[in-house]
Design a protein around this nucleic acid. Structure first.
Lengths: 141, 141
DNA sequence: TGTCCTAACTTAGGGCTCTAAGATATTGCC
DNA sequence: GGCAATATCTTAGAGCCCTAAGTTAGGACA
């Protein structure tokens, strides 16, 4: 139950539990998986959102995003259009329904997590800052 | 590239990058995936190691562990025997080869991660303690 | 115009995860 | 003994991720 000095294992189990919990909430309330929801959130945050940019931002590969977008394209939550700037690119954007879902479910999830963190006694801002810094050190922009 | 206030997303990308990096190292040096290696590490740490205990400790489900053990059973790195205490249980244990692999590769991985964390300016012990506390708050023992 | 190069996206195959449902073994109670 | 309850493990089917290899679009240059 306790991994003596193994931060990697500890982070794995933490994220695993967090995402399982988030997945259950999203499936029950919005009929959507946690992974797909993360894609929607990121589409809402990126300025010029291409599949390549999504893959970088979520730290997954292009094929993964390619399939996710294909699966999400039929839901009416986002639109896929050739990039007006040219090139072999797709421009991804949220529809009104997508924006509304991200807004509602996103604030709920973030709220629950923030609450959990603070009730555990871990200082939210410090932990978030540390996590961000580690992410940056690992090549994340 | 930056998720405004979203700790969940930040943790996801961090773990994703960490595990991809670890996976590459393990595959190159020891011909083994990161997931399977985590199982071996945990088998080495648990006193009375059943599949159920492994699933709890790694925050995955019993079917996942069932398949992992089936896949690992043929490698000579661990042994599976009926639990001497009775019940429908398997007792999982490392062989000498398994113990040696966990020892060598484990210290290497932990060393690299520790180095990375400290070079990023994040205080290792604090971050580990926070992560542990969050894990405990999420029902992890 | 034609060829090469690069970047973005897609396809194919395999690994690991989940949920749901089935099989197996022990305990408790009649 | 026999039967139900409980815990553990397994099987089946589907989702998402990865690597490797193929496709498509635009830019550079002769």
């Amino acid at each position: 139950m306790n991994h003596p000095n193994n931060l990697g294992l500890e982070l794995h189990t933490l994220v695993s539990r967090l995402e399982r919990a988030g997945d259950r909430i999203l499936r029950a309330d919005h009929g959507m998986s946690y992974r797909r929801f993360m894609v929607l959130v990121m589409v809402g945050e990126l300025k010029a959102c291409t599949q390549r940019a999504l893959a970088d931002s979520l730290a997954v590969t292009e094929p993964s995003i390619s399939r996710m977008i294909a699966a999400l394209a039929g839901t009416g939550l986002l639109t896929v259009t050739p990039d007006p700037a040219g090139g072999n690119r797709r421009r991804i954007a949220l529809t009104d329904a997508g924006r509304e879902l991200v807004e509602r479910a996103g604030t709920e999830l973030i709220g629950r997590l923030t609450e959990l963190v603070e009730s555990s006694g871990v200082p939210f801002d410090t932990y978030l800052a540390h996590t961000r810094r580690l992410n940056a050190a690992l090549g994340g922009g």
